[in-house]
């Protein structure tokens, strides 16, 4: 992207009405609440639980794609941003340790991939886009914090550091590549690895 194009992109983001960004932040909060509601789903029984979980994730994905988001400015190539993200996942697997075994169900794999894409659409497309006018530090920091906090009720307080670190890296990828598809690919790879190693 040339400097002139970059200025156009920045101008496009800045002319979007503030109330649209505010409403998108409200939508992101509601989406985060829906992610938290996953903890209720076991009371529904096995078939209904799967349907409800898939429904929640698909709704978050759809809503996050429906809201307008200005195109981001790429600071490095997508391949380079993806490579840094995948390296981060691999190194953190080494420092954090191998995930413990768990008796997970066969359809966990598609669900965990759907969760990765839906969460990235919510945090790195909708929420990041709504915060971008406040600066990259705020957009990266707030989306990473929200991402980490939403997982605490499900995975316990001990999960907060690793999910905060992952959130920072994924949000950095959004800033560096200008697109949410790069963090979505990294997140999907991390979830795939976690599922496969169990």
């Amino acid at each position: 992207m040339t400097a002139a194009q970059a200025r156009e992109v920045d101008r496009g983001a800045s002319v979007r009405p503030a109330r649209v960004d505010l409403a998108t932040l409200g939508l992101s909060t509601l989406g985060g609440g829906m992610l938290l509601a996953r903890i209720w789903l076991p009371v529904l029984g096995p078939p209904a639980r799967i349907a409800a979980l898939a429904g929640v994730l698909l709704a978050i994905l759809a809503a996050s794609l429906i809201v307008p988001a200005a195109p981001g400015r790429a600071r490095i190539g997508r391949g380079a941003a993806l490579a840094v993200g995948l390296a981060g996942v691999a190194i953190s697997l080494g420092t954090g340790g191998r995930p413990v075994p768990a008796p997970i169900v066969a359809w966990a794999l598609p669900l965990t991939l759907l969760a990765a894409v839906a969460e990235e659409a919510l945090y790195r497309r909708a929420m990041y886009g709504a915060l971008e006018r406040r600066g990259a530090v705020v957009a990266i920091g707030v989306t990473a914090l929200a991402f980490a906090l939403v997982h605490v009720p499900l995975y316990g307080l001990a999960a907060f550091p690793v999910d905060l670190g992952a959130g920072l890296l994924l949000s950095w990828q959004r800033w560096a590549s200008g697109t949410w598809s790069v963090p979505a690919a990294t997140h999907a790879a991390a979830n795939l690895l976690m599922t496969a190693m169990r």
Binding site: R38, P42, P46, R49, I50, L53, G88, V89, A90, S92, L93, G96, G97, R98, P99, V100, A102, I104, V105, A108, L111, T112, A115, A116, E119, H151, L154, Y155, G156, A158, A159, P161, V162, D163, A166, H187, A190, N191, L193, M194, T195, M197, R198
Partner: peptide, 11 residues
């Protein structure tokens, strides 16, 4: 809490 990311709610 071991692993690169705790996410996905694996039933």
């Amino acid at each position: 809490a071991r692993g690169p990311l705790l996410d996905g709610l694996l039933p």
